[in-house]
Amino acid sequence: MSNVTEPPRGRLRQLRQAYTITKREDRNIGLLLLLTFLLVGGVLGVIGWWAFGSSLLGLILSIVFAVLTGILGVLIVFGRRAEKAAYTQVEGQVGAGAGALQMLKRGWEVKPAVAFTKNQDVVHRVIGRPGVILVGEGNPTRVRNLITSEKKKHARIAGEEVPILDVIIGRDEGQVPLPKLVKHLRKLPKSIKPAQMTSLLYKLKALDAMRPVAPMPRGPVPTSMKGQRKAMRG
């Protein structure tokens, strides 16, 4: 039997899918992108014409410069609006917080659902230079109780030199909205060294081995947002 492989998706197809998803939440995205292209391309085209001169060659270079910078401006604006639309669509869903945390890359260690309730309140753990960060999503009261319990467990293992912070996802006072979660974590002050992170991860393996597997669906954010970011990168 011959192996049949699905042909890879083209870049244009990925862009169309990202645009369709964004259009559902941002109806004016088409007009915004058109205005961005005209404004950025027009302004930089004039600058290019002034820099390259008014000869035929200068005119051609100015047009090419205007088109390329206009497209770049469109991609930058589209990337930001697409990311915002993706967050808006999944905000409030179970697993959305875990999905957003997957956007953290080098220098961060994310473990989804280190604690949970039958009502689908969840606490995720992030380890980075700021220390141990417990991120909760769900009912604020139940999540706060979960975080308090997890703080005690992690403090016994991490020791006094490692800060244990907490964040609750939401839009109420004292909470962090899902679209701002990753940015909020990256802005936290660095308190431990990479060597301490490695040692901490090793210590926490014993704690994690005693935990039950969380019956939590995978968040929809990674699939949609990673696809859109790949399309933006080209």
Rank of each mutant, 00 (worst) to 15 (best):
M197L: 15
Q228Y: 09
R211M: 02
I133N: 15
G41R: 11
R211C: 00
H184C: 10
P112N: 08
I21L: 14
R233I: 02
D26F: 14
R80I: 07
H154I: 08
P8Y: 03
D26V: 15
I192W: 01
W50G: 04
L75C: 03
R186A: 08
L101W: 12
S191I: 05
T5N: 06
E91P: 03
L68V: 13
L185Y: 13
K180M: 14
L201F: 14
M210R: 15
P194D: 05
K105N: 06
R129Q: 03
Q93E: 04
A158T: 02
W108V: 12
G170Q: 15
I60A: 13
E6C: 12
I133Q: 14
P163G: 07
V167H: 06
K23E: 06
P220D: 03
G234A: 09
H154C: 10
P112L: 07
G92V: 04
Q228M: 12
G10C: 08
P217S: 05
R27E: 15
V46F: 07
V221G: 07
S224A: 13
P140T: 02
G107N: 10
L39Y: 11
Q120E: 07
R27I: 12
G174L: 10
K193N: 11
D121V: 13
M1S: 08
Q89S: 03
G174D: 10
N119M: 13
S62N: 04
S224P: 03
V167D: 04
S54Q: 06
V126C: 03
L104Q: 06
T141Y: 00
E25P: 05
G70S: 05
S149I: 07
L57T: 04
V126M: 09
D208C: 02
G53V: 07
G53Q: 02
L32Q: 10
S2D: 10
R81K: 02
N119A: 12
T148L: 00
L39S: 15
Q89H: 01
L75H: 02
G48S: 14
F37L: 15
E137F: 06
Y19T: 00
Q196C: 11
A113C: 13
V221P: 09
G48A: 15
H184V: 13
G174W: 12
D121F: 00
A98Q: 09
M210Y: 11
L165F: 12
Q120K: 01
K190G: 12
H184W: 14
E150P: 02
D172P: 02
W50H: 10
I127F: 09
A214N: 04
W50F: 11
K193R: 13
V176G: 09
A82S: 11
K193T: 15
D166M: 07
Y202H: 14
L181G: 08
G234E: 01
P163S: 07
E173S: 02
W50M: 13
W108T: 11
P194F: 14
L61T: 02
R142Y: 05
L188D: 06
K105I: 01
P222T: 13
P222S: 10
V167M: 12
R229N: 13
